[in-house]
Simulated scan of single mutants.
Amino acid sequence: MTTEAPVAAGRIVLLTASHRVAPGLLSWPAWQTLRAADRVLCADEAHPQLPYLREAGVVVEIAAVTAQELVDACAGGTSQAEGSGEGRTVVVVPSGEGDTALTDGLARLAGSGRVQMPDLELLPGSYDLPGARLLDLVQVMDRIRAECPWSSTQTHTGLAKYGIEEAYELVEAIEDGDRDELREELGDVLLQVVFHARIAQEDEHEPFSIDDVAGTIVEKLIHRHPHVFGDERAETPEDVKEHWLRTKAIEKQRDSVTDGVPLGQPGLALAAKLASRVRSAGLDVPLPAGSGIGYELLALAVRAEASGTDPEAALRAAGRAYRDAIRAAEGQE
């Protein structure tokens, strides 16, 4: 007496693809699986992958199936090898949001113990490249600019103060050493860049986009790092700084070493920046004669810069110590 081998339950392949990668750019294992499958199912008739799958000769059925129907589709039939007795391979192309009802249903069936389940496989058809989530940020910003009553009316001038605030909050997170806060504040600063770039797109006379912003800084970085992207050599950080300053001077064609120093920055930082420019240029410029706290602070800032100390950071550190002392005094009352 012979006993027939049980028919295998087949194979379900959930094919995922990043929406941040152009449709049709799938991995070779994904294309192999699609071509070899007995059936390819997709519930979304507007899925961006469908035109490319059909162009490649893959037959896709537009059908929304339940977990049980999908299991039944895998079992009870033969594969492409006629008479092999094996279960079928069914590939499901989920929607962009994912088919949670289907995956939850499959999980329930598998956990019930009452159903012979097919092999379940999650096959990534494409992966996000580094920086891909920036595309999400651009898309979200586009929608907010179009639909939010507050964001849709903002201008470069109106947002300027937030850029300053976010920069200071980023510095505070760095000095506090709080990694979670640092990640969040970096995002807030990045938002300011994307927001301003989105507003700039709407300018009637000189529009530019976030891609133009990114392209400009990429060109600048490549041009100012000839020791990385060119033939020049730089063995030390001082060599790199020399390259940077020399290239920047050629680009800007400035008349004075003070050109490009923003006068609106905090006073100690301004004094230190001017002192740095004087020192880098090899100039001998005496401090202006004068009396009062301003001239005293100027001298302190110049002295700090000459010793390699950031006077703003030093004063903030002292301010934090003063704050802690105040809190301690309050706690004793």
Rank of each mutant, 00 (worst) to 15 (best):
G24K: 08
L315S: 14
P286N: 02
M1V: 06
H47N: 08
Q192L: 12
T309V: 14
T153G: 05
A173K: 14
T2A: 11
G308P: 09
L283E: 06
L298V: 14
V13M: 05
E4V: 05
F208G: 10
A5M: 09
L34P: 14
T155F: 06
G131Y: 01
D128M: 09
L270G: 03
G282I: 05
R277W: 03
R114G: 05
L50Q: 07
T78Q: 05
V213K: 06
G83L: 07
P288L: 07
S84N: 14
E305T: 06
E69V: 11
V171T: 14
G230E: 02
R143F: 07
R303Y: 03
V21L: 08
D284Y: 00
D203N: 13
L182K: 11
A5W: 00
L26G: 10
P266I: 00
K273Y: 01
D324N: 06
T100K: 05
A301V: 02
D38G: 06
R54S: 05
A314V: 02
E202G: 13
G111L: 13
I210Q: 02
Q253G: 15
A9G: 08
R316D: 11
E175F: 00
H47L: 03
D239M: 01
S126P: 06
R179A: 12
E175C: 07
V60M: 03
V193N: 14
G264C: 08
E4T: 10
L102H: 04
E55H: 10
D310Q: 11
W244K: 05
I326G: 05
K161M: 06
G125M: 01
A146V: 02
V115Q: 10
L15M: 15
I164E: 13
E333D: 15
R114F: 01
A289H: 08
L70Q: 05
L50F: 03
E166C: 02
V138T: 04
L120Q: 09
E45W: 03
L287M: 12
V93M: 09
V40I: 07
E61V: 06
D136R: 11
P288I: 03
S307C: 10
A132D: 11
T33N: 03
A318D: 10
Y127Q: 14
V138W: 00
D142Q: 14
L14S: 00
T2D: 01
E121K: 00
D188Q: 08
P207D: 02
G131Q: 02
G57R: 08
C148S: 15
G77W: 13
V189T: 15
P29S: 08
A299V: 02
A8M: 01
D212T: 12
D178Q: 05
Q265S: 01
R179S: 03
L41D: 01
E169A: 13
E305C: 07
R35T: 02
D136V: 06
S84P: 00
A272W: 12
A304Y: 04
R303I: 01
Q139K: 15
L297V: 13
T157S: 08
E296F: 01
H196A: 10
R35K: 12
I326L: 10
E185C: 13
Q201M: 06
A275M: 10
R233H: 05
R224T: 13
L268Y: 01
